[in-house]
Amino acid sequence: MSANPQVERFEAAGPLPAATGESPVWRAAEQALYWVDIPAKKIVRGSLETGKRSEWQLPEQVACIAFDRNGTVLAGCETALFAVTLAAAADTGASAGEPLTASLRKLAAPEFPHPGMRFNDGRCDRQGRFWSGTMVMDMAAAIPGGALYRFDEKGTLSAPVVDALITQNGLGWSPDGATMYLSDSHPQRRLIWAFDYDVATGEPRNRRVFADLNHYVGRPDGAAVDADGCYWICANDAGQLLRFTPQGKLDRQIAVPAIKPAMCAFGGRDLDTLFVTSIRPGSGATEHDGQVFALRPGVKGLPEPEYAGQL
C-alpha cells in the first residue's frame, strides 16, 4: 500500500473547474465517472475509455445522484428528489458545445422547515435504499434545520430519520451494510457519527461519535468506504483525505492539490482508483481548485449500489 500515492487530474473532467464538484459515482458498465456541479445545475460525465466529457443542464441545483438498474438518475436537488433521464452522451464529448438535455420527474419532497434549503449529500445503502440529507444553503447562518431522509424501494420518503443537522454530509456504509456513517461538516460541528444499521428495515440506531475532526484537520465532507471497511473522508479546507479504520482510528492522511476536497468515490477498471471532486473557493483559488483528481491508494473500493426501486 502506497503511503504517498501520486495524485493526478482526471483528464476526462476537462479543463474547466467546477464551482462545487460533488457526488462522484462510478458506472462500471460505462467505465465512466459521473459527478455534479451544484450551483452550475449540471450533471457531468467523464469517460475513462475515451477521455471525453459530457454534461447535462438541469433547471435547478443538483447536489447528489444515484442510478437505478436502467440508468435513470435519482437526484437530490433544490426542491425535491427527481428521476432524471439523461439524453444519450455521445463519447465525442459535449464540452465544446451546448450541454445535453435532461428530463425530470418529481418523486418526493420533504417539508422544508426554513427557506433557502436544498438536498445535499446522498447515496444508496447496500440494499438499494436512497438516503439524502437537507441543509440551509446559507452556511454562515449556522441553522440546524437539516435532516436525513430515506427514500425506499417502494418510492416512499420517510420522515426525518436524523434531524438538527447544519450541513449534512459523509454518508457511507460498511461492506456488510451493518454500520452507517454520517457527518456534519459545518465549522461548528466537524463530527462524524456511526450507527448500527438494520439492513432489513433500513433503521439506524445507537448513534455515537466515530471521529471528531476538531482533533484532526479540516471539515468532514463527502466519504467513501473501501473493501477493508475503512472510511475515507474529504477534509474540506485542509486539502487532505483521511482514512479511519472501522474502530475510528486515523491510519492514513493524503494531501490533494485542492484546498477543498468535497467527496470521493472508488472506481476504475479494478475499483482501485479513488476519484476526488473539489470546490473552488470564492477567493484565492488556484488552478487545481474545482478539479477532479484520481489516485491509487493501494486498496480497492466496493461497487456503488444502485437504487432498488423502479423510477
Rank of each mutant, 00 (worst) to 15 (best):
G76I: 05
G282Y: 14
Y197D: 00
L107V: 00
I65L: 04
Q57M: 10
Q61C: 15
R53A: 07
Q57I: 03
S23W: 01
S54E: 06
A294N: 08
S185C: 14
E203S: 02
A159T: 02
L241D: 02
I259F: 10
V161M: 06
A255R: 08
Y231H: 10
M135W: 14
L100D: 14
P187S: 15
A147P: 13
G97I: 07
V25A: 05
G116M: 06
E287A: 15
G116I: 10
A200K: 10
L171W: 02
I259A: 14
S158F: 07
P257G: 12
S103E: 14
M137C: 13
I259S: 11
A89E: 10
Q127C: 07
G46F: 13
V299Y: 00
P17Y: 13
A224T: 08
A224Y: 07
L271Q: 05
R27G: 02
N169G: 11
W35S: 06
Q253A: 04
L104W: 11
T134N: 09
S183H: 05
G284E: 13
D152N: 13
R219T: 14
G133T: 08
T134R: 10
V7G: 06
T79R: 04
K249L: 12
M263F: 03
F293K: 13
P15S: 11
L74W: 00
V84T: 03
D226M: 00
Q6K: 13
G202E: 03
T277N: 01
L311P: 03
G248D: 07
P15Y: 11
D184E: 05
V44E: 04
G248Y: 10
G172R: 00
R45L: 10
S283H: 09
A255H: 04
A29W: 08
I166G: 08
E22I: 08
E306C: 12
G290S: 08
F244G: 06
A29V: 14
V299S: 00
Q57K: 12
G128Y: 09
F275Q: 01
T50E: 06
F10C: 05
A141N: 13
M263L: 07
D125G: 02
A96K: 11
D289G: 07
R9N: 11
G128N: 05
A164T: 14
T92L: 12
M180K: 04
A109I: 04
C234P: 06
